[in-house]
Amino acid sequence: MTTSRQLTRPKALAGLGLVGFVLLLGLVGPLLAPYGPLEQIEGANLVGPSPSHWLGTDEVNRDVLSRTLSGIRLDLLVVFVAVPVGAAIGVLTGLLTAWWNVADVLTQRIFDVVLAFPTLIFAIALSAFIGPGVWTIAIVIVALEIPVFGRLVRTSVRTVREMPYVEAAQVAGAGPLWVLRRHVLPNSLEPLTVQLAVSMSVAVFIEAAMSFLGIGVQAPNPSLGSLIKDGTTLMYDAPFLALGPLALVLVLVLGLLLISQSLSEAHRD
C-alpha cells in the first residue's frame, strides 16, 4: 500500500509527530494535571504563569494548564470521532446512491443545498435550534462532512463505472456491491485519506470558531476553543491565558495539514 510509504516522508513524519504529541497530551495529560479542570483554587484569581500554575489561572481561579490538558480531549473527540463518522456516512451515501441515477441526482442536489450554507452560519442557526453545546459541534461537523465525502466518492464511482473492465465484469454478472468493493473503494482511498486529514484540521477550526462565538462548548467545561475565547475576553489583563490552547490548536492543525499535504504530494508525484 502506497499510503504507508507516503507517511514515512519527512514532512509526513513531522505531521504525525505533531498530531501524536497532542494526542498523547490529551490522553495522558489530564492524569498528570496538577489540579482538576473545574477546581477553583482559593485566592488564585487571574494570576500569571508561575511554577505552581504554568499557564496561570483564569477569572474563576482555575488552573489553565489543567483545563487545557483536559480541553484537548474534546477536540480529539471532534477530530477522531465526529469527522470519521461524517466521512463514513458520506462515503456510504456516495457509494450507494451514485449507482442509481435517480438517487444520485437527488442526493447531489441535497448536498448542494447543505454545502451552500456557510458553515458558521449553519452552526449559528443550528445552535438556535438545539441550543449550544458539544452535540451542536458534532452535528455541524458530521453534517458538513457527509456531502464533502459523498461527492468525492461519487466522482470515483462515476469514473470507475465507465471503465471497460468494469463494464465487462458487469456483463459477466458482477453485482454493484462487488464493483464498489473491488474497484471503487481501492481507487478512491488516496483522495479520501487526503480529504480526511483536511477535514480533521477544518474540524479543529470549527470547534474553535463555534466556541469563540459562544455556540460551542459551554462553561464550565473546557475545550481548546472555549479556552481561547476565555483568554481573548481578557486579552489586555491576562494575555497569557490564550497562549497555551492557541499553541495546541496551531500544532494540531499544522500536523494535520502537513499529513494531508504530504499525502497529496505523494499522490501527485
Binding site: 477553583q40 477569572e59 474563576v60 441550543g131 449550544p132 459562544g214 459551554q218 462553561a219 464550565p220
Partner: peptide
C-alpha cells in the same frame, strides 16, 4: 463567571447544578 462561582459554591454544600446558557 458568576454562574461558575455559584455552581462551585453550591457544589460545596452538596447541591449539584447544571449550567445552561
Amino acid at each position: 463567571a458568576v454562574a461558575q462561582i455559584v455552581q462551585a459554591n453550591l457544589d460545596d454544600v452538596g447541591i449539584t447544578v447544571d449550567l445552561e446558557p
